[in-house]
């Protein structure tokens, strides 16, 4: 029961934060609220028994992403968003259609927490039953991440690597020129 309460309250916080982010115009505040948003999501993940995800979201959403956004803000030195010049009707329509589709789509989705849903009966249980003896890692998430779906994780590392290369190419000139001088020496 208390789980449900926390769940609902955190969801409500998320909604408030999201609405506030849309309405606020000071980018500084937006970024801080965004970090709160991440934090609440991390809390929700924890409530929904996704410890690893909560961990990651806390580290990434509230840590790295926020710092990077602040760094951008420092460079752009533009703290106030311009007020929207007109009511964005088309985006609103698109969003409503998308949202409508999603609500329509969730009608047939198995109930929240239903242990008999396909997701809980098909592939997932295998990992829980065999994960520990297959990989000798009690944390099944790690077992799946690193072994059963290790290839996805290789892709994930590659994604990060790509981002690193990308950022270096885009704004890392200073760092690389230093490197270049060292090479020449």
């Amino acid at each position: 029961m208390i789980d449900t309460l926390i769940d609902i309250t955190l969801l409500a916080f998320l909604v408030f934060t999201a609405v506030a982010i849309i309405r606020m115009r000071n980018l500084f505040v937006i970024i801080m609220l965004f970090s709160l948003y991440s934090l609440f999501s991390a809390g929700l993940f924890a409530v929904m028994d996704a410890a690893d995800v909560a961990f990651t979201e806390a580290a990434v959403g509230a840590g790295i992403s926020t710092v990077l956004m602040l760094g951008t803000l420092a460079l752009t030195k533009n703290h106030e968003e311009k007020p929207p010049s007109h009511l964005a009707r088309l985006p609103l329509l698109v969003v409503l259609v998308t949202g409508g589709a999603l609500v329509y789509g969730t009608y047939d989705i198995p109930s929240f927490g239903d242990p008999a849903s396909p997701a809980q009966t098909h592939v997932g249980p295998y990992y829980i039953q065999h994960g520990k003896e297959d990989t000798s890692a009690p944390n099944i998430v790690t077992a799946v991440l690193a072994s059963y779906r290790g290839y996805d994780t290789l892709g994930e590392v590659t994604v990060i690597f790509t981002a690193g290369i990308g950022v270096m190419l885009l704004i890392g000139g200073r760092l690389m020129r230093k490197q270049k001088r060292k090479d020449q020496r």
Binding site: A54, F55, A58, A59, G63
Partner: peptide
């Protein structure tokens, strides 16, 4: 799960 609290305490401060 306490690890999450710990990490968040760290990260929040640094933020």
């Amino acid at each position: 799960i306490i690890d999450i609290a710990l990490i968040y305490a760290l990260i929040n401060f640094i933020g």
